[in-house]
Design a protein around this nucleic acid. Sequence first.
DNA 1: CTGCCCTTTCCTGGTT
DNA 2: CAACCAGGAAAGGGCA
Length: 412
Amino acid sequence: MPNTGSRPTTAPVLPLYPGLMCLPALLNKLSGSQGILRQPMSTAPYKPIPNNEKVDLARFRVKDPVEWLVDDVVSWMLDVAKRHGIPFEEMNMHKFANLTGQQLIAMSEQNFVDRDPIWGPLIYNELRKNLAEDTSVIDEIMKKYNADEDNATTVSAGPSTSYDIPKTHLAAPTASPIVPQFQSLSQSLNHTLNQTLNHGIQLSPNLSQNLQQTLNHSLATSLAAGLSTGLSPVNLGIVHNGLSPGSPLVGAQLQSKISPLPSDMTSYSTNAVATRSEFEGSEERRSIVDSKIRKCKDGKARKRSQHTKGNKLWEFIRDALKNPITCPSVVRWEDPIEGVFRIVESEKLARLWGERKNNTKMTYEKLSRAMRTYYEKQILVPVPKTGLYPKKLVYKFGPSAHGWDSVKEELL
DNA sequence: CTGCCCTTTCCTGGTT
DNA sequence: CAACCAGGAAAGGGCA
């Protein structure tokens, strides 16, 4: 059976927006002031990290995940990216770059999705595979996690659903010294970029936030530069070279954020997950335990819930229509007043749906079959054949669907 | 354990 | 011919 739901294996080469060509000069300027952007690339078999330690990128292989230090986590993620043919720059590696193996294990799948909406489920599954042979480790971690939760005061603030690492973990001596450097640099980059780009390009708050994320992303994923062709140990000095003026990486990513292209879905569903609270707190921990305990009769791990609140197909599509990353590149409104929308990239939508459901075999054929079951429930209704709309890939929300007409309310 | 719900998977046949 | 649409049937899997 052909695996039509397979993941992309090649990095899309995105053209740069001319308006962003100022970026290399900007970075060049920054490198002059901070002196960290341009450093010679080393061919040494180990990567020197800022504290001058050398780290073997294969070390994680001979250690249990529970023993992984932050560098092992990064190495492991690079290995995952390599094995799955995922361009490293598509992974939000910086969101994981300051976590130890213990912290990683304590995270729910949703935490992974929060950090990387596209590859989070895959990364999560890869970790679970690693852990599958030794569930006692997870029990131990969960016990510790729960104890931390009971003892510590609330760490989280505001609506963010980002994973709240217990303070005891945050204080771990293995915390990466790279991260503060990223934050500092990205902050100044963000500030300068906003000043520069706003001359010609209006940035919405969301876009601005995406820009910030992209900058962090670019900085951190540069960790992996040179690894896209293999997992041979590399010099971490290319963290800086990755942002050298000649590098198209930053500009390409910025361009993709400023005008989401069909190929850019790396931030997809951030809106959807950001407003969901059922994964937090005890529920979140329960999902961690569930993912460990619930097994099929054949011993294989079960797929994650298909019925989690907010995880219905029509809600997924509704949210995609609200997300500037997916709308209009993947789905778009034909008539937001009437609830008529069009699927622009059918297979891409199916892939995203499959990722949401942790099902790599999802296809548009199957997604559309599920869509057709909605006609009976009046979640979808037949599109009026007025000639106003395309004949294919067009659907219309019905009276049983809710929440989509906020678009209409905004327009009125 | 059971029944319901929401898909998922497979299929045949039709349409664009 | 590929892509899409329509809908039957059966099964998977979560949840109350």
